[in-house]
Amino acid sequence: MKHRIWLVLGLITLGLLAGCASSGPERDINDPTNSLVFGYIDMDDAPTKVSSAWMVQVAPPSDTPYWGLGVSKGLFYNSYLPPGSYQLSKFGGSGFFAGQHEYSFPRQGNQTALRISKPGIYFLGSYKYKKAKSGMFEQGKFKIEKINKPTEAELLKRILDESSDIKDSAWGNKIRARLAQLKS
């Protein structure tokens, strides 16, 4: 019975998260004010992989500050963020034995803080999950450490390869131009 209660709570939470996903991005992918924001997280040392990711808009103030990110094997991205200030808010993931996990980032001292003043392509960086020491009654803690691989170019290529929506949109040419710039 206890397990069922947690399952129900988990389903309710997933429902709420799905609500958040649809609340943010009501924008055309070809909107010229869009920015593409992306990054990578290596979760090899984490209890689960990442299956959902969220950024929070901290400025300008918004009633719907959470923006869902596309997630694929550690790569996370959003291609329709308007100008503003953002940071990673949380990752979610689940595993058969590990159960449902949520990885929350702090609101202060968040190393993924990003200010978008003009539309463009923004690389948040590649990170690796590391477990951090926590007290007996505390929630589990973790930290993320910046890593060199995969590179910005490798991830942009993956976005083109894995998302036909992005490849076939105005982003296709912009990403190719950025790749050329990174190559030179």
Binding site: H101, S104, F105, Q139, G140, K141, K143, I144
Partner: peptide, 10 residues
Amino acid sequence: MIPRRLTFTR
């Protein structure tokens, strides 16, 4: 930065 991890079982 010390983010926090919450499991439903926790």
